[in-house]
Structures are given as structure tokens and as C-alpha cells.
Design a protein around this nucleic acid. Sequence first.
DNA 1: GCAAAAGTGTTTAATATACACCCATGA
DNA 2: TCATGGGTGTATATTAAACACTTTTGC
Lengths: 236, 236
Amino acid sequence: MARKLGTPPPAVTVDTIILTVGAGLTDLRVLLVRRGRAPFAGRWAIPGGFVEPGESLEQAARRELAEETAVTDLAYLEQLYTFGDPGRDPRGRVITVAYYALVPAAGIEPHAGDDAADARWFSMFDLPRLAFDHGRILDYALARLRAKMEYTTVGFGLLGEEFTLSELQSLYELILRRRLDKRNFRRRILAMGRLEPTGRSRMNGVHRPAGLYRFAREKGSTPKAARKRHEATRRK
Amino acid sequence: MARKLGTPPPAVTVDTIILTVGAGLTDLRVLLVRRGRAPFAGRWAIPGGFVEPGESLEQAARRELAEETAVTDLAYLEQLYTFGDPGRDPRGRVITVAYYALVPAAGIEPHAGDDAADARWFSMFDLPRLAFDHGRILDYALARLRAKMEYTTVGFGLLGEEFTLSELQSLYELILRRRLDKRNFRRRILAMGRLEPTGRSRMNGVHRPAGLYRFAREKGSTPKAARKRHEATRRK
DNA sequence: GCAAAAGTGTTTAATATACACCCATGA
DNA sequence: TCATGGGTGTATATTAAACACTTTTGC
């Protein structure tokens, strides 16, 4: 474990990709900060910073998130990958542990931090040229999110406390970039056993009101039992 | 990106979990090195070291591997996870980027490196107490390998150039720790379209000789086409 | 001819996909 | 009564799982 003399230690940053959805579920958005100084002055970048002595990598990611947004309830946070190619930062060796976070749709406003001259949301599907290798990191994050959406409930947290199944489906279609069949989607999503009807409903125009659901954080019952319960609820 | 004064930068190591299978496909093995000095002197640990200035993280993992074993053909290498909890190394902040590597079954002997007083293979299912949080890292690696075995061809590289389907099945059963149905296994594995018969066969006792296969590195044809081709081959 | 592993199909269950109409609402 | 999105079921195809006997070999 002895370190060779004369080789400066690499710098380590934790960068956090903060994702949310735009109002009306029309867009998947990522929070970027504009760099004030060289290199890449004026370019947009993923917010990040150094790890403080006493904190874990995940805590560093959470701190970043708190510094960049007024987010209170974080829906999801996961380590994405560690990027460490030499030359990815012209100033010297920088190793970046990337995390990605999902925050609910409610009107989150970015607030400019100490470092960040400016911070704002961008569409994940219409990104500016980014600093460093951050474009590649975002590609990687989107691929991971898509893969996980297929077989987990990660996506649920992007919506608020209560949501309709149509909203959830719009979210899936938005991120996966393909149309889903309404009936099959509802069946599959309810079969996961993590959604429970709140009993309330919401009207969103001149048509039948939509039932509201909430995400059951506790690991629900088995899919089969969940479906049965859902059918029973329906019969009432 | 400015760094606060007075906070020493964390050390970064790349640790590589080197996995292979024991002769006779009876065991999944991991290469560990015995620590010569404190902390955890005498305990076994995952081989690792610092990143050299000019190399990528993956290159560092490959270098480790070359230093610890006489491996020539590496079957698989993937970044696993980055561990950085404060306190995981009593000497100070150490962030470890873990990789895992699969090397073919052929008689790989570890050779003691500069740092490592001693290096040897251990069964993944009968591990000694490890230094640092390395036990947890191995758990994580095994979980990842198992998950990937279910839907990819990662495992194939653990066998040599040529192998029988029974050997491949033994490998899967060994790592997944459950019995598999022979017929279903062969069907599924051939349907992946990445295995081609070499035309040769091997005798391994007083019974019918087993056909040999090789791993087709090039992305083969579609599963359906592969099965058709297999059936056609069979008919000859 | 016997012991031992290699090699082969079919039946059934579970899961995924495709697809069209009625419902509740406010204007 | 109409326009709008909400809500439901069934038939078919695909995939996964269970299951047993014949073949080839050396002794």
C-alpha cells in the first residue's frame, strides 16, 4: 500500500446526475451547472465536488444534491460508474465517482451554489455540448435508468406522492422512448405489488376522473396476491 | 473544482478480484494476497495498488492482474463498484475502485509480487477472514457475476478454448449453486448463438465421448437461426 | 452386457403480446 | 350529445419448466 514518491495523488470528485421530469410529463430533465472558469469555461457540466473527510461517497452525492437544489425528498440515488481515464481533465488526473439521483416532479428550482455561476435544467434529449467527458456520463446514466425501469420500480419516485396510472405510463414512455400498450402496462405495473390506490381520484379535464395511486415503499405482497387484492378492490 | 486547503486528498486504489475455476470444475476460486504489514498484517486481501499517472483505471486493473498471475488471455474484466466509506482503512481515507476479472481454468499459478508476501487461490465458498471491507467486496462480486450469468455469456470465458456442454453446465451449477436441467440448459445455451461445435470430441472416462464447443466471440446469428443451424448440423 | 456420462423431445405452465370497446365527466 | 381521456378482458404467441429414455464407449 506504500505510495511511490513523486507521483501526485489523483483528485477524486463525486458528480451527481440529478434527474427529474418536466411539468406535464413532457420531458426528462437533468440539472447542469455552467462552468465559470477554465477549462471548459462557459460550458455546462454535471454538478460535483470533492469528498469531505468524514463523509461517504453517497453522503457526498447527497450533499451535492442539497447544495444544488432545494430537494427535500429524494426518490432514488445510486452509484453509476467511476470514470478515471487520464486526460479527461486537462488540469491533471481526476477520478470521478458518478451517482445519479431521481427527484420528484414537484416544482424543484435549482439554486446557484457557491461554485456554480449558473444552474438550470436541460432536456436529456436536447443537451448542449458538455464539459469534460460529461456527455458520455449522461449517456451512461440514461442507459442505466432505462435498463432498470424495465424490471424495477426506480421510476416511480419521479412522480409525486399521488399519481394516476396514465401519468406513470407517460413517464415510462418518455424515458424509454416508445409507446406502451395501456392495458398491458397497467397489468404489469400493478402485478409488481408496489402500488396501492389511495381511494381518491383526480380530474384533469373534461372526462372521467382518474384514480390515484401511491407507491408502497414497503415490499408489498406477491404479485399474484397483489392482483387478487386489486381485483377485490375494484369489485366494491 | 477548487480544492479546500488543509484537507488531504483521499488515496485511490484499484483492486482486482481475480476469479477462476479449480481443476475438475469443483470450485470457484479467487486470488488473494497475504498482507505483510499493518493494518491487518497476516490477513488475506484482494490484490490492488495505486493508479499510475498515465494509465486508465481498467489498465491499472490489467496491470495488477499481470503482476499477480501469469495470465495471458483474460476472459473478462469489468468495473464492479467503488468503495469509499470513511474508516474502511484505519490509516486514512482510501477510495477503492474494484474490478473483477475472469481467467480461464488452465493451470494459472499466482506469482508473488513485490508487495505481496504470499498469494494463493481460495474457494469463494470457504473464505478466510479478510482485511478491510474486502469480504463485502467479494460478496458483491459474486452477486454481480451470478446476475450476469443468467442473461449473458460472461461465464463462458472461465473455461478453456474447447469445452463440452457438460463442463459448461457444471460451471453454471457451481457458480449459481443450484442444479440445472440438462436438456433445458443445452437448449438455452445453444439458443444464445455464441457457441459453435469444433467438430472434435473428447473422452473423459468409460462412456460416450462428448462433443467439443468453442465460444464464438463474434456476435453470432440470431437465436432462431442459430438453433436452426444447430439442428441442421446435427442431422448430418 | 454393464456401468457411466452424452445426447435428445414433448407436454404443460407461465408470461408476454396484440387488440377494441364502454365509462364518466363538463361543456 | 359530444369530445376526451379513464378504464377493462380475452385470445394468441412466446418462453420457461418439468420430465425419461436411448446412445456410445471401455472393460
